[in-house]
Amino acid sequence: MEQVMTGRTKPASGSRAGSLEAWQENSKWFSYGGHAIFSRMAGSGDPLVLLHGFPTASWDWNRIWPMLTQDYSVFALDMLGFGFSDKPSPYRYSIEDQADLVQGWIDGLGLQAVHLMGHDYGCSVVQELLARDQEGSLPFRISSVCFLNGALFPEVHNPLFIQKVLRSRFGGLISRGLTRRVFENNFRRLFGSQNPPDRQDLDDFWHLLVYNNGRGILHHLIQFMEERRCHRNRWVGALQNARQPMRLISGAADPVSGGAMAARYRELIENPDVVSLRNVGHYPHFESPWEVFSAYRTFRKSFGPSDR
């Protein structure tokens, strides 16, 4: 299945789920390995778990949150090292560890079946959870999966120069010395030309990045790029062997994991279900939330409801 949609202009600020401060206040906290993890939950219906990307946080979902919570019970968290969650150092950050965190959180909530939506870094966590599902080691069922721009296939991932430098032996210096100007210049490059982040958006994303010494661990977090290469067979195999309905919603203007990633998905996945959003970059759920919600709702209506 192939669909192409044209991204609309950025929604008015009234479509946000309140301010960043309100997002933080309306939260639930839990512990993982002695570390405090930030989460949010709202809505009613089938459980939908949202997993964010690097280097941002669950706040990425704030524009689409009011739409999703009308139809589903929606759960989101800031993974360890991100956003408002603890950012321990030293710590061995990994996708596998984040998958352990998410698995324990879902199990602790008592959910028997969940739908997953992942973006960027969160896509890799979803792939690891899919692999575990196929091994029969998850205490819950994955009912469906939706991917938003992520490096599902590392061979066609095109990282920014700053991401390459953060992975190098100079990564610690670059991470600790990252300025807001450098961050903004690189962050803006990820967005489509019609939907750039405004000043308030940049204030919010920067605040989440530097919160609780977040700059000091970026070079540790970004090692997930090497994990993708090392676990490529396991995580790509999880996609190819998935029994659940899957859809890729791709911002085609993304310079990092856009058109080439969608093309690779069509090559390697049987009966690929892909929705391409023109003029939309790396953050489709933030840049064009209505189009993402519409594409996701259509996807969910294409198969029956799951058992909760």
Rank of each mutant, 00 (worst) to 15 (best):
G171S: 05
H219C: 01
N213R: 15
L173F: 10
A151K: 02
V182G: 01
S137Y: 04
Q223P: 05
S250N: 15
S175N: 09
S175T: 04
K164C: 06
A252I: 05
R181H: 12
F147C: 01
F153I: 09
R176C: 00
Q200W: 07
V182R: 11
D133P: 00
L202A: 08
W206M: 01
S250C: 14
D203A: 10
R243D: 15
L148C: 06
R232C: 10
L221D: 07
L160P: 07
A238V: 07
L239R: 06
L130N: 02
G177H: 00
Q127Y: 06
R229T: 12
R132K: 08
F161A: 15
V165S: 05
R247Y: 00
H231V: 03
H231W: 14
F224W: 07
N233L: 11
G258R: 07
R243G: 14
G136N: 04
I249C: 01
T179Y: 03
L173N: 06
H231N: 13
S250G: 00
H220T: 08
R132S: 01
R189Q: 15
G136C: 00
L202D: 05
I174T: 13
P196W: 00
F183S: 03
A242C: 11
W235G: 02
L208V: 01
G216T: 12
R232G: 04
P139V: 05
V182K: 12
R167V: 02
K164G: 13
Q223R: 15
R132V: 06
G150F: 09
L160K: 09
P159T: 11
M225L: 12
L152R: 08
H207E: 14
L129R: 01
S193C: 10
R264F: 09
N241E: 10
R264Q: 13
P139F: 05
C230P: 01
I222P: 10
Q244S: 08
F224P: 00
V145E: 06
N241W: 03
L138F: 02
N241G: 12
F161H: 07
F170Q: 01
Y211I: 02
R188M: 03
R169K: 07
A252N: 02
N149W: 04
